[in-house]
Design a protein around this nucleic acid. Structure first.
Lengths: 139, 139
DNA sequence: GCTTACGATCTGCCTCCGCGTACGGTAAGT
DNA sequence: ACTTACCGTACGCGGAGGCAGATCGTAAGC
């Protein structure tokens, strides 16, 4: 293939399209992008400090405070001081948080499938597999 | 595959990694990201108006003016008023611009190949093919 | 000729984000 | 006890980018 667009250019365009497609889904569930990212991270595993969470999701540690406040007020996450070290706040999902995350995640999966609906199933599977292999944030 | 990261999340992470990897390449050639995007667009086809160029690359029409100024000053693009309609500026690469674009593009291709070096050749080919199929900016 | 529409440019406003700083609370080593 | 280091939080700065309006030159319809 002598002529193709730049890889980065394609990826950035595709990312934008994906994020744009997911915005309405998130809005429908009343979660911000960062909020959903936080829910996803905590759904995978609870965190012992906010700094660790920020590092895990690639955000500034001061940035996510407002989002954590919001999520906590809405009863989606718990943020209680560690009795063993009262500097740190133990972060985990509540039942409501887990439920909301599952719902949003399902809606997003559906949207993703819609965007990839032209692809043969085998191609789609391989595509996802390669993406995971290249993903710098996975392993 | 019951459990995988969100597609958008993976794509955004990968995009960031790609852009970060290409930044040094661009700097080595003295071009900004937008500058390179402009060169790429004009390498594909000359443009009759700056507004059309901005639309083509998904940028604000006022945003790219400074970049065009810079590229023009450095003799990489030509921006002459259309004799038939002196409102519009005909945009095209100069020989130097075409040459620089080819050089940067080559370096970026090499960098991309390096990042995908773990992938079997067949997977890589299919991956690129699928990306082009999904790319919203292609057709 | 006059009005309307359009291209390029400049300016200002707004948001988002990364980064650094500062401060109070707390732990741990000595 | 004292020092050092770390956590969470607040604040401000600066860059990047999207968006709107104003201006100027120009074109086209009437």
């Amino acid at each position: 293939m002598p002529d193709r667009p730049d890889l980065a250019a394609m990826m950035v365009r595709l990312s934008r399209a994906l994020v744009a497609a997911e915005r309405p889904v998130l809005e429908a569930h009343g979660v911000s992008m960062w909020g959903y990212i936080v829910l996803s991270a905590l759904a995978e595993e609870p965190m012992r400090t906010q700094a660790a969470l920020a590092r895990a999701i690639g955000a500034d540690k001061t940035r996510i405070i407002a989002d954590l406040d919001d999520l906590q007020e809405r009863g989606l996450i718990e943020r209680e001081p560690d009795p063993a070290d009262r500097r740190v706040r133990l972060l985990r999902l509540t039942a409501a948080g887990r439920e909301l995350h599952a719902a949003v995640r399902g809606a997003i999966r559906a949207e993703e499938d819609r965007l990839m609906s032209d692809l043969p199933a085998a191609d789609r599977r391989l595509f996802l597999q390669i993406l995971q292999a290249l993903d710098p944030g996975a392993p």
